[in-house]
Amino acid sequence: MRALAALFRRELRLSNRAGGGGAMGVVFFLILVTITPFAIGPDLNLLARIGPAILWIAALLSTLLGLDRLFMSDHEDGSLDLLEMSDAPMELVVLVKCLAHWAVTGLPLVVATPLFGLMLALEGDALWGVAASLAAGTPALTFIGAIGAALTVSLRRGGLLMAILVLPFTVPVLIFGVSAASAASGGTVPFLTPFLILCALSLGSMALAPFAAAAALRSGD
């Protein structure tokens, strides 16, 4: 248990030292939010209507962006082998690494969302709806992405392949995330229905993905 806590702190320190992976993710998120109005026009009514969808797609892409480094740097410098030889089961190591990764990349997105939502003319309920749905849904994205990161860990140009492998599996998260976010600002569906399913997706992927990712890491060598 203490070893896992130490691993968690190590992950946080490493990501802070290596140029701040979380800050980069938020900057990428901001850029995506900024360029969307250039593509669809500055109509505030339209932006407010599709704002939750824009924020969700931006969050999905910026989560994917950092994921290929999740295991790769440890694979390159050999510390992944050390982690594999340690007493802690690989599944728990993967879980801790994912949680740390989410704390560094997913959490800043959630915090930044209300601010960026203002730029897309979202108001009151809609802002909190998007933030809450991202807080509930981004862990699922990290855990599903971890499977892809583990499968492509030993490939030199695995980033694009990882996106191709992972994105189809994120469809349910995206669907329920955007419906929860839109439901918060009024709609035919009550907010709680998609929101609770979103929570279930996150918890389910948290329970299952470490096993798949650990199996993929073991089969890599």
Binding site: I147, L151, L165, A215, S219
Partner: peptide
């Protein structure tokens, strides 16, 4: 093995 894991996922 990698494809098998992805198939089961």
């Amino acid at each position: 093995r990698a494809a098998a894991i992805l198939t089961l996922v």
